[in-house]
């Protein structure tokens, strides 16, 4: 009987510890409850929740990083020896599709071009992308006067279109996010044209078979 009383006294002493400044529960978590659990080699439910939460937060952080990467082209500026020539001539036969040659837009307003080729294929592929900063430029592509879809935001990731190998391609600038700079690559002559236009302006590419 004495033993039982002794035990119950101990339990009461644990449960009704005097509080200080009315915030003793804050201290309890860190200084007693949690430490007691740790001494026993167990984690308190609060610590367990923090650790589980950390795992979830880490998984969410990785997911966020992946989603961030998919939302951004993430292409770095090409530093190869061909870039200088491409900046100067705005044409390149060596730089690949999706190459970024400038860090920021240079407000370049280009002109129309005639592309001569000897391909006997009926169709070819056209790639369009932003060769400078992804700053929210929108363009619309027309082939022989007919639009190829709606205006779209150009990114450093190229968008491809299948077009006739003999036609007139018009790229219209529909929204300027800070100078509409874009590049087009025609598979038919395997050349990239680094061009630019203004909002409402356009560049025409005439594809002619030799």
């Amino acid at each position: 009987m004495n033993e039982i009383r002794q035990e119950s006294k101990e339990v009461r002493r644990e449960q009704f510890r005097p509080e200080e400044n009315g915030v003793s529960y804050v201290q309890d978590i860190g200084d007693t409850a949690d430490k007691q659990q740790r001494r026993k080699g167990q984690e308190s439910p609060f610590t367990g929740r923090i650790i589980r939460g950390a795992g979830v937060a880490f998984a969410a952080a990785i997911l966020a990083l992946i989603l961030f990467a998919t939302g951004h082209g993430g292409r770095s500026v090409d530093k190869s020896i061909y870039v200088e020539d491409a900046i100067e001539t705005h044409v390149s036969t060596t730089l690949g599709v999706g190459t970024r040659i400038l860090k920021r837009d240079d407000n370049y307003i280009g002109g129309d071009m005639t592309i001569m080729h000897s391909s006997d294929k009926e169709e070819t592929t056209l790639y369009v992308w932003d060769y400078a900063a992804e700053d929210g430029d929108y363009v619309q592509v027309f082939v022989d006067g007919a639009p190829l879809g709606e205006p779209f935001m150009i990114r450093s990731t190229p968008v491809s279109f299948t077009i006739p190998s003999v036609c007139e391609v018009k790229v219209v600038g529909t929204h300027d996010g800070g100078g509409i700079t874009y590049a087009v690559y025609y598979e038919v002559d395997q050349t990239t044209y680094f061009n630019g236009t203004s909002q409402g302006g356009d560049n025409t590419y005439t594809l002619v078979r030799e």
């Binding site: 939460g53 950390a54 795992g55 937060a57 880490f58 969410a60 952080a61 990785i62 966020a64 990083l65 961030f68």
Partner: peptide, 10 residues
């Protein structure tokens, strides 16, 4: 989200 999530995790 990545920055905050990483800090919370650490």
């Amino acid at each position: 989200c990545f920055i905050l999530g990483s800090v919370i995790a650490v």
